[in-house]
Each structure stands twice: as structure tokens, then as C-alpha cells.
Design a binder for these strands. Structure first.
Lengths: 231, 231
DNA sequence: ACAAAAGTGTTAAGAATACACCCATGT
DNA sequence: ACATGGGTGTATTCTTAACACTTTTGT
């Protein structure tokens, strides 16, 4: 049974990316409209096939870069989907990844009109997706919520400089609940992983609000001292 | 790029199982000694190849049943490992699963001596494993610790009837730390998901200790009322 | 002067932790 | 009678949650 390779069936392997973004108000997801069969015209996640010379992480990076042009994106593997009939055309096992991209750094999406049209949707207004992609998105949301509480991944979704209010809005969008302003700020400051700038953002109010940066060095130092990030 | 299936490479897909057990004292892992190449004679996880007519969960079930004869085992998918050179003989992508089996229900292991010899190891005394199996085990331990705090999975590893002390020892083994007896019992009782029997286990002491059963109905009712299990 | 968002601490409630003695029984 | 593990409750600390007013400044 396991003592030989010769009798193994072979499979097409795909990656599908759940791409999250944030526009300072709502959590978004990037979807593409399929311009090819099967399920032409329907919305789906961005995906691609694994190639012999790469591993799954690299395939996900490649797919993401093709669509967004972005490199060094936060990507995390989620789950392998393998139902025999999940893809009606051909047996395909797909490994899902979720990506966090900072909407303000994001250049135009590679929407070449030929293969697919890409579009940002509010996470709660996304259309029905093909295959098992709806389940993939639900799963990704759960993981995102969990991760947001145990790793400072939120910063991946924000511009380099951001206000406390933006950070709070992001966490509210991820967790799906309102948070208390003072408690939130106290908690964040208690973590001591932000650098407060002298600069203010004057867009949101007359008074202006101070900008902060995530201090990755401080964070890494704390983690290596055994500090456990917990929001 | 994604608009056709024809140019896709194909891959051998495997599942590898991290099989945890508990002997009332230590957390154990079931490993097999390979009697075939590559890496003949070395210890590894139990694995097998995915077949066309099944999905990954089914493949993991099959592999596990072949080894242990057990059905209805708790199995959870963990991660897809896909390094190009992870298996020196042939490009193989492997999806890891962890399994929890109740050592007392476990019949003899299917150790047929021809293909492999299976052996239980204390988790902290396990030998070096082939390929990336060491990483798979580390990953599985982390997931097990997390799950143990948020789902009553511990009960999968115990006999149907068990004492509080057994339950506590199990959690201590999983979490790798000593717990306070009174606090532990208070917490467990606070969850109100156990059924206390009139029966006593007379093996562990002269006085005897009451046996308990996990009440799955109560648990499910609580969960569907929105109760969040948190140990 | 007022509208609109920023900024700032304290108190109360709840959760987690530390801790020590008596009980039942077989030998 | 004693040795062994079983069983039980309270006080303290820490963490989390609730809560309201003043500041700044552009119009």
C-alpha cells in the first residue's frame, strides 16, 4: 500500500487566494469574474495551478503578484479542498491561501479584461462564488479573526502610517463588533509595539490625529522574550 | 494562465497522519519503521497516497483504519507540505492530518512486520523522522494544544468512562504543564458537560474515584446556544 | 459659537490563581 | 494505625469592561 510509488494516481493541484483589503471603513475582498468555462461569468477567487518547479507558497505568491503586482504580501495557507467533484471539469485539489493587502499601497489591479475582471467587494456584500469558494471565504474569515487577536497582522492591511482610529476601525471590521475607544487605545498602548509620530493626519478632523507606525523590531524583541501578543 | 486546464502539471498526493494517544500518564505518538526505500529502516509517520475516487479526509481515514483497525476516529487536516524536494524519490505533496485515538479502545496495531513495524513513543522521546515529518509533528502539537483549550477534544483520547484525575493528567500532558487539582475540577464542573456516574474506579486508590462520562448532547446544546468552550 | 472628531483615567465586575485540610479505604 | 489518593471552598490578584467630559480648530 504505502511501499511503492508506482501505483499512485496523480492530480492537478491548484491554489486559490482569499485576498483581504481594507479601505479605512470596511473589510473588502478581491474577486474576479471568470471569462472562461466552467462557470464563465460567475465570480470566483483568484487562483492558479501549481507548477512542477515551485511549492504551494510560491504558487500563491505568483498568482497574487500576477493579479496585484505586489510582492511581499502576507500570505498564509489555510486548507486543502479535495472533494472529488468540486471542479466539474477535472479532478482538482485546491489549497486555499489568504492574503492581506494594504489597500492604499495597492496599485491598479491587473484587470486585463481578457481573462478576468477583478473587483473589490465589501466582505458582507460579496456575491455567490463558484465551486467551494464560499466555504473557503468563510474559513478564511474565521482564521483572520483568530489571527488578528494573536498576531499583529492588522498592520498588513493598513498604510505604513495610520491613526488609532483607523486601527480601531480595522479591528472592528475584522471582529465584526464595535470596540470601546478608550479600552482599545489603552490595550494597544499597553502592548508597546507602536511608534507615535509627531505628524498628524489632518484629513479626518479639524483637530487632526496623531499618526503611528508599527514597530516591528520592538515587536520581534518582545516575542523573542516570550511575550505573547494578545489583543 | 488560469483559463485552461490543459497545461497543468500533475502531482502525487499523499496524506500523513500524526496519531496521538494517551496511556493515562503520557501523551504518545504512533510511528512506523519503514521497511522500504527511500529511508528504509527509519521512523516515519503513517501515510498513504490519495486515490482518484476519494477525497483527502477519506484517504486519511483509510490509512488510519489500515493501521489501527479503528473507524470513527477524530481526524483533522493540518497543512499541505509541498517543498519541491521533500521526497527525494518523486515530487509529492503531502497533506498532514492529526488523529486522536483512545489508547484503551485501541486493538492491536496492524503491525504485519512485512511493510512496517508500528510503535508508540512518548511524545518527548520520539526519534528523528524522515523528510519533513518532524515539522509535521511540531505543527500538530501546536494545533492540539490550541484545540484542547477550545474544543473538548481531550475526550477522544480517553476511555468512555474516566476519572477527573485522568482527565487532568491528559490536559497536563497536552499542555505540558501541571495544573491545580481544585481549579481544574472547578473549571470542568463549571462547563457542565460531564455526567457523573455512581460507579467508581477502584484501581487508582483504596477510596476509589468517581467515573465521569462526556455528555455530548449537553455539550452540543450549549454550543448551539452560543456557549463558547474555553478551558 | 458651534460642530466634529481627538484625546484622556477611574471604577466596578468578573476571571484566574493560590492555597490546605479532611475523607475513605485496604493493608 | 497509617499510607494513599480523593475530594472539597475561599481569599486574593489580575484582567476586562463600563463609562463622560474636555480639547482643538475650521467654518
Amino acid at each position: 500500500m504505502i511501499n511503492s510509488y508506482q501505483d499512485g494516481d496523480k492530480f492537478t493541484l491548484a491554489v486559490d487566494c482569499i485576498i483581504f483589503g481594507f479601505d479605512n471603513e470596511k473589510l473588502k475582498i478581491l474577486l474576479i469574474k471568470r471569462d472562461f468555462e466552467p462557470e464563465k461569468g460567475k465570480w470566483s477567487l483568484m487562483g492558479g495551478f501549481l507548477r512542477k518547479e515551485e511549492n504551494l507558497d510560491e504558487a500563491a505568491d505568483r498568482v497574487l503578484q500576477h493579479l496585484t503586482g505586489l510582492d511581499n504580501v502576507y500570505l498564509e495557507q489555510l486548507h486543502a479542498y479535495s472533494a472529488v467533484d468540486r471542479d466539474p471539469l477535472e479532478r482538482t485539489v485546491s489549497v486555499s491561501y489568504y492574503a492581506l493587502i494594504n489597500a492604499s499601497t495597492t496599485p491598479e489591479i491587473n484587470d486585463d479584461g481578457e481573462q478576468y475582471a477583478a473587483h473589490w467587494f465589501n466582505i458582507d456584500e460579496a456575491p455567490e462564488l463558484i465551486f467551494d469558494h464560499n466555504a473557503m471565504v468563510r474559513h478564511a474569515m474565521n482564521r483572520l479573526r483568530y489571527r488578528a487577536l494573536t498576531k499583529p497582522i492588522g498592520f498588513e492591511l493598513l498604510p505604513e502610517k495610520f491613526t488609532m482610529r483607523q486601527l480601531q476601525s480595522l479591528y472592528e471590521a475584522i471582529l465584526g463588533e464595535k470596540l470601546d475607544k478608550r479600552n482599545f487605545i489603552n490595550k494597544i498602548n499597553g502592548l508597546d509595539i507602536l511608534h507615535k509620530l509627531d505628524e498628524k493626519d489632518m484629513n479626518s478632523s479639524r483637530k487632526g490625529s496623531f499618526l503611528y507606525m508599527f514597530d516591528e523590531l520592538k515587536y520581534n524583541a518582545k516575542v523573542s522574550e516570550g511575550f505573547i501578543f494578545k489583543l
